[in-house]
Design a binder for these strands. Structure first.
Length: 520
RNA sequence: GUCCCCUUCGUCUAGUGGUUAGGACACCGGGUUUUCAUCCCGGCAACGGGGGUUCAAUUCCCCCAGGGGAUGCCA
């Protein structure tokens, strides 16, 4: 294999774990900052990351900002935010540096023209002066032109036959142009995909003469990715299967340069429920949306890692470290995978339940603050209250964003509930009032933090009254928490404070009494 | 249209030339329970179709069908 032109190439000397590879694996995630990081990007990044970690290789981040009209700094920021949140780290990248930098393609600008020109000089590429519009494509090629591809298939190779010296002269004279790769007219091009095996094309079926260098002087993805992967010493390229049709032209380019291509591995796609490429219309797809909704990064990573890949049979909870250890290309599936929000939700619940109380508190605090229930950051008193309440809601949250509703009664005075809410199924207002009064009377005498004793006392009282325990508790629950659905009552009251609970109860009694009198 | 890729329960997947084809989510039923959850137990449910190869194919080969992707001076 050729050594890359750029310095700093690291040869692997120690590693016990990759004795079969003399060379340390170098993989990259190379997003273009033209949109928010979404599930698909994260999946690609994750698999590259896991592969690097699993073989003790190097994970590199490279920004492919060659689309001047769509690239934007807000997306770069989003990229960093996203991966910081997910807990990925890269060994080399724009911010961390490295020996193969710069890692931002716009900062490598000169490199691409240089390489494109080199290809032109070698007769492997050519200047094209066609206007950048559909007319160039639709223009009927000369009938007898053997080099023209079938109608409707790509660029008609109009400029391919312009005399090289003449083309050079026009380009030097400043005539607007692009540089296109000469795809061989016959023969075949193929490669061995690490996952899919051998794939090959007749060159006649390969995208005819794709643009390498745009008229603005920036490279297209094809040129930039080949040049940079080579110069950065990338050994393995893992990308989504939508890239398969571009593979032959990349191979042809590596060939033209006389470089050895990296190993290619095309990952199965992630689809929405309708079987099409996952997109906004399927629901949340931007990672940011998941974060704001209250998903835990560990849950998202765990779930995404299992889309199209398996690890240890019979287990489904894996940390990023677990995954880094267990990941193998052999366990990647070839078939596309459907993104299932419901299963992700289950993972999220699992991870929320695994959180230590203090950790849960710090996780839900921002959501509580957004709901204006606590300060940001919470006061000491609020933190204490959250900590006391954490065990009550831990197994009831599907998302962190569920916390405000579940805990509202501890931080805000609920409205006095409407009568209908306070009525157990079989009681009228008078009956409910009696039940609630009995409950309050009893509550005053017990210690709600002693769960078992409290329950025993209420159970006994319910029996005396000839009603079910639930019917005795429900009016109290609604009076105290403002809703029919709440964490366990005694513990909730213990956290809230008995005095507050009694006061809320009295207000509800008043409402029930008034209703009873009114209807009597 | 052309080229390429894919095909195990609804979904994510395990798996083997001979298995009762396993697990998870969802769903259904039951249990625990103070509402809601959690938790526990049980159930439903799959090898796309057709040809081969073979004593034996879900597993190996071919064809078909279906699905997806590509066909940009976007990546």
């Amino acid at each position: 294999m050729n050594l890359p032109d750029a310095g700093g190439y690291t040869w692997f000397t120690t590693p016990y774990r990759s004795r079969r590879n003399t060379m340390k694996a170098r993989v990259r995630y190379a997003p273009s900052p033209t949109g928010l990081q979404h599930i698909g990007s994260v999946r690609t990044a994750l698999f590259n990351y896991l592969y690097a970690r699993s073989v003790g290789g190097t994970f590199i981040l490279r920004l492919e900002d060659t689309d001047r009209t769509r690239s934007d700094d807000i997306y770069v920021k989003n990229l960093y935010d996203t991966f910081r949140w997910l807990g990925f780290y890269w060994d080399e990248g724009p911010d961390t540096g490295g020996a193969s930098g710069p890692y931002i393609q716009s900062e490598r600008f000169a490199l691409y023209r240089e390489h494109a020109e080199k290809l032109v000089d070698m007769g492997k590429a050519y200047y094209c002066f066609c206007a950048d519009d559909k007319s160039a494509k639709k223009e009927e090629p000369a009938d007898e032109d053997e080099t023209a591809p079938p109608a409707g298939f790509g660029y008609p190779r109009t400029c391919r036959n312009i005399d090289a010296a003449e083309a050079k002269r026009r380009a030097s004279a400043g005539e607007p142009h692009v540089i296109r790769l000469k795809i061989p007219l016959d023969g075949v091009t193929g490669f061995d995909d690490l996952l899919l095996g051998h794939i090959e094309w007749k060159n006649a079926d390969v995208n005819p003469d794709p643009v390498l260098l745009k008229s603005d002087g920036f490279p297209t993805y094809h040129l930039a990715n080949v040049v940079d992967d080579h110069l950065m010493g990338i050994t393995h390229v893992m990308r989504a299967q939508e890239w398969i049709p571009s593979a032959p032209l990349h191979i042809i380019m590596y060939d033209a340069f006389g470089w050895e291509p990296p190993k290619l591995c095309h990952l199965p796609m992630v689809l929405g429920q309708d079987g099409h490429k996952l997109s906004k219309r399927h629901g949340a797809t931007a990672v940011d949306e998941f974060r704001k909704k209250g998903y835990l990064e560990a849950a998202l990573i765990n779930y995404v890692a299992m889309l199209g890949c398996s690890y240890e049979d019979g287990r489904d909870i894996f940390s990023l470290d677990d995954l880094s250890r267990l990941f193998t290309i052999e366990h990647i599936n070839k078939a596309p995978a459907v993104f299932d929000y419901v299963k992700l939700e289950w993972f999220n619940g699992q991870y929320i339940r695994m959180l230590p109380d203090a950790e849960l508190v710090s996780r839900i605090a921002p959501f509580m603050a957004d709901a204006a229930l606590v300060a940001s950051p919470p006061t000491a008193a609020q933190s204490a209250l959250l900590l006391a309440a954490a065990p009550l809601v831990k197994e009831r949250l599907k998302y962190l964003s569920d916390a405000p509703e579940a805990l509202r009664f501890l931080f805000a005075e609920p409205a006095v509930p409407p009568v209908a809410e306070l009525l157990p199924k079989k009681l009228d207002a008078a009956g409910a009032a009696r039940a609630l009064e009995a409950a309050l009377e009893l509550l005053a005498t017990i210690d709600p933090s002693d769960h078992d004793a409290s329950e025993a006392a209420f159970r006994a009282r319910a029996e005396e009254l000839g009603i079910k325990l639930g019917d005795l508790l429900m009016p109290l629950r609604v009076a105290v928490t403002g809703t029919k659905v709440s964490p366990p009552l005694f513990q909730s009251i213990a956290v809230l404070g008995k005095a507050t609970a009694l006061a809320r109860g009295q207000k509800a009694v008043a409402v029930l009494r008034a209703a009873a009198d009114g209807s009597a």
